[in-house]
Design a binder for these strands. Structure first.
Lengths: 158, 158
DNA sequence: CTAATACAGTTCGTGGAGCGAACTAACCCC
DNA sequence: GGGGTTAGTTCGCTCCACGAACTGTATTAG
């Protein structure tokens, strides 16, 4: 494992950057009155509504966990359960007007802060970082979740 | 933000790698019968015992949160509260024999898995990644916590 | 040397989060 | 139309995190 110069190891770098991003997420959420889970839920819903099962797969949660999360978020007026027109068992969780607004703000602000993290790197270095880290996440097929909003996300369908 | 080619953005890369590492942490912990918080506590204690206040600063938790975490971990037989010889208000939280063993196993296994994540990169690329990410965490002075075991620790063997 | 203050930890009450097991209701389809 | 699947919820539990209030020791001021 290459790190004989004073440099930090890749494991430590990953672990600590994780810490960093977690903290940003939590704090940004907090400032918007959101837990990071609720913030995540809002972000996932930004492009379109989803069913509970879809959400639970996307977020990596048990369905019973999701019920609670949606309950709490709904209680805060940020999402709404709508009946699915094609399946009366199912439910579509959608952002309310307020939720939509808050999601946008939270998303923008959180991105801004995360983008700030590598501010000490040159544009080229940030690009390299994005490429390498991007390959890591692709190689490990991250559940495809989370802030998928980079764009290509919309094409995802059940 | 440079991402006009098909490449993922640096924000998305960071966010998703965070997801990845979180998952590794949680799963590795789970397989050792640990929550990630308890796993983290054990790791922090590997080099030496600490007082509650020190721990709460290192882990970024309120003191009252730490009491509970240590309680639960102690109940599992992994740590022990010892009186501080120099301050009878204070307490030193130390690993038990069992906790020490488990911490080592958890630590090694978790590192192994995290090290696995960038397996698709060449050695040189991993090194670059470590350098760039290392600068990011240094620039943002990560609370200096977490798996602190890397500092001198690369070749560390207690 | 006492009195005020600061500090170390705990307790208590609250709420979010996550899980599995058991359940209801709708769907599918043969 | 009956059996198996699927969508979601409910229930009971544990963990986690917080702030406020508290106990008791240390420290420092006067």
């Amino acid at each position: 494992m290459g790190k004989d110069d004073g440099q930090i190891g890749v494991v430590a770098a990953l672990v600590r950057s994780t810490f960093l991003v977690n903290a940003v997420y939590a704090q940004s959420g907090q400032e918007h009155g959101l837990t990071s889970q609720q913030g995540q839920l809002l972000c996932v819903l930004m492009p379109q509504p989803y069913g509970m099962s879809e959400l639970s797969a996307m977020l990596g949660l048990a369905k019973s966990s999701l019920t609670g999360l949606v309950d709490r978020t709904e209680r805060n007026g940020l999402v709404r359960r709508e009946p699915d027109p094609h399946d009366s068992r199912a439910v579509r969780v959608a952002l309310t007007r307020q939720g939509s607004k808050l999601a946008e703000e939270f998303y923008v602000e959180t991105c801004r802060r995360i983008e700030q993290l590598p501010a000490g790197l040159s544009a080229a270095e940030r690009d390299t970082l994005a490429t390498l880290l991007g390959r890591v996440v692709l190689d490990n097929k991250v559940p495809v979740i989370f802030m998928e909003l980079d764009d290509g996300a919309s094409a995802r369908k059940h």
